[in-house]
Nucleic acid binder design. Structure first.
Lengths: 240, 240
DNA sequence: AAAATAATTGTTTAAAATACAATTATTCAG
DNA sequence: CTGAATAATTGTATTTTAAACAATTATTTT
């Protein structure tokens, strides 16, 4: 079959915005770029899309290469296609954002990529348009987490409600009434109470909960409006 | 500066999912493809991204080429990058969705593209993965319109509340109480009441309203939760 | 055994959404 | 003209949900 003539071919890459929660702060995982231009500068983890793989597959591959993790929450965010975004050669980048329990990421001994976690308020300068990507991902996280139960992806399989609350408070930079928070989250029917308590963080101890994977999809919208009026959320309005 | 060696270059296109409302039904604008393969089959309007333009610019160009319209609501939807999605040659497609008042689209005399409006329930088979794109766009429209005042983009500059209501009812395939609907929409502070009434569609006549462009951005979130529990909405969960 | 702490449960108040009824402005048939 | 018909608009009562804040409980430490 004949090819499409006279059209420009270009490079396509994926870049991953990787969020992690360590129980205290929400962090971003970035690497030090290993080649020119911008060698040694901070960058998102990324890679070119190969001949035989889809963008999703490329993102999974790239994420695994850096963290060693599989089965991670990963979602396509936005495609950046400004003709000048990469000074070397025209490259469009399909950005993905990932959510992981940052305790799972143990820095490899070799540390092939010179990766580093940064708290969201202390992110260094990033190459190209990567800062823009991170800002959009941050907004998107707030937006989506106000409507759907995705923040669980940042927690270990067993977690307490106070821990969940502190995650929400970190993401929305605010505080919630603990009584109301607890009832609201339980009323979604998404949590399964465990017999054990966490007694490290308080005297009374807080029960552990697990996410009810069976009801997760079904109740994906029970979370709708979980946070009613998150400050300054508005999915980056890309109307032209 | 040296180029990135040994990476595959590929084609990048944009495809537009164009929704229009004619006062009765929500329709999709598609064209008949003019070249092989799949010549004469129904397709979304699209085009390759040119050397000097961004994806956004390409989408605007493509939309204008078909409809003659500028300043239209246009938003990046999702990037489709399956290696086999186009049988001719590897092409990734950045899909955009557009909202227009379909009365503005007057079929060109020449009708260069053999374009046609189809009601959403009667969309013919489309080439490649275009059907998938349309489905995702439809879900996304429902999702976003439940939270933000974007459906106005489908209406003429002056419209009545009953017309707005019928648009919402068409989009969500349900009915709303007219009294409550009217109050709710007015309480957003986004509408400016006009002096004139539309007396064509009813005896009493319904006042015309215009969108308050000044408050539009500010109140973009006043619409949050406008539709509380839209049936079956859940932004296509693309977690991997 | 009492004090301290933080989780959990309870109660009250306020706000929002929903259902449904009443009123109003207009046209049209007789 | 007059009143029946129609559909928009406004009104009211009920229910649901959220928010504020107080009381109770389980546990550890002194």
């Amino acid at each position: 079959m004949t090819k499409y003539q006279k059209q420009t071919r270009l490079l396509a890459a994926v870049d991953c915005i990787i969020f992690g929660f360590d129980g205290q702060k929400l962090n971003l995982l970035v690497i030090q770029r290993a080649f020119e231009p911008e060698i040694n500068n901070w960058s998102l983890m990324g890679g070119f899309i190969q001949t035989d793989e889809s963008a999703d597959e490329a993102a999974v591959r790239v994420l695994k290469k850096l963290t060693g993790l599989e089965g991670v929450y990963l979602e396509q965010l936005y495609t950046f296609a400004d003709p000048l975004r990469d000074p070397v050669e025209r490259t469009i980048s399909i950005a993905y954002f990932a959510l992981i329990d940052s305790n799972l990421y143990k820095k490899q001994l070799t540390d092939e990529y010179h990766a580093e976690w940064f708290p969201l308020e202390e992110i260094p300068d990033l190459i190209f348009d990567h800062k823009k990507m991170v800002l959009m991902a941050k907004e998107n996280l707030r937006y989506k987490a106000a409507l759907h139960p995705i923040l669980f992806e940042l927690l270990p399989p067993m977690f307490t409600i106070p821990l969940l609350q502190s995650l929400f408070e970190e993401v929305y930079e605010t505080t919630f009434d603990k009584g109301n928070f607890s009832r609201k989250v339980i009323s979604t029917g998404l949590l399964i109470k465990q017999k054990e308590k966490d007694k490290v963080n308080s005297k009374k101890g807080a029960f552990y909960y697990k996410l009810d994977k069976k009801h997760y999809k079904k109740n994906f919208n029970k979370f709708l409006h979980f946070i009613r009026n998150p400050e300054g959320i508005s999915k980056t309005n890309t109307s032209l």
